[in-house]
């Protein structure tokens, strides 16, 4: 979000500043694409090794990246990442952690007042128009981030189940076993093993970040408290 100080300093709209002002989004977006392509190459080689072992024809790169095998490997990770943010966004409304910059101040647990949230009559001149609305638009907008993350989680989890069914059945046929239906796959160990191994790692990462950031610092990072902040300081970002 653009802050008033950014506007005042004239950063926005100045030629050449675009890359600087959007470095975080661009950096992670680019890194995502590079790593996705790298995953595709590694997955392609691994998949062909399996086919070779089974005496079957190897597949081209284009065939692999449109296969259910690649699809399920991508989707199982996407769903867990979006679940992580969905849970974190909603959990941090109500749950607080003393000393953690990931938590808000202890007395602010809950949805907070309209004044704190700058909605309705407390909306500022530069607030999004739906924040100033008093009806359903404000209610929807006030939950839009969590709902978007939750929706993407559900869609990618659904995609995991569909691509997972196809990938699992392809492997079943390679091993001369009968394929299963989507409903059967939802109860299978393959589906839940893929799902839970990702969920546990995401929950571990969140929990670690919440606790470690109480005692450890990263100078200059907004994810950390200032280096000199006390361990008991809560809701303070560097």
């Amino acid at each position: 979000m653009t802050s008033r100080s950014d506007k005042a300093s004239g950063r926005i709209g100045r030629p050449g500043r675009f890359w600087h002002d959007n470095g975080l989004g661009l950096g992670f977006g680019t890194a995502f694409l590079i790593v996705l392509v790298a995953q595709a190459f590694a997955g392609h080689a691994d998949y062909n090794n399996q086919l070779l072992g089974d005496g079957m024809a190897q597949v081209g790169f284009g065939d692999y990246i449109t296969s259910s095998d690649f699809g399920v490997d991508v989707m199982e990770n996407w769903q867990s990442e979006y679940l992580q943010f969905f849970l974190y966004i909603f959990a941090t409304v109500w749950l607080v952690q003393r000393g953690s910059p990931e938590s808000k101040e202890l007395h602010k647990a809950g949805r907070e007042s309209d004044e704190d949230q700058m909605v309705g009559e407390h909306a500022r001149e530069d607030s999004p128009s739906w924040a100033a609305d008093r009806g359903w638009r404000q209610g929807a907008y006030a939950r839009s981030l969590g709902l978007a993350m939750g929706l993407i989680f559900l869609l990618s989890w659904l995609a995991q189940s569909i691509t997972g069914t196809a990938a699992y059945n392809e492997q079943q046929l390679r091993q001369l076993q009968a394929p299963t239906s989507w409903a059967e796959y939802l109860l299978s160990s393959d589906f839940w093993n893929r799902t839970l191994q990702n969920w546990q790692s995401e929950l571990l990462a969140i929990g670690s970040m919440v606790i470690l950031s109480i005692y450890l610092r990263q100078r200059g990072s907004p994810e950390s408290k200032p280096v000199g902040a006390g361990h008991g300081d809560t809701g303070v970002e560097g």
Partner: peptide, 28 residues
């Protein structure tokens, strides 16, 4: 049943498994 490059063909009196090769579908 077709899943990717693998097939199970259920016949009246038999079941076949096939796989896709550059020369087409072959019986595994």
């Amino acid at each position: 049943d077709v899943y990717g490059r693998q097939v199970r063909a259920v016949l009246a009196e038999d079941t076949l498994f096939l796989s896709l090769f550059p020369a087409g579908w072959k019986v595994m």
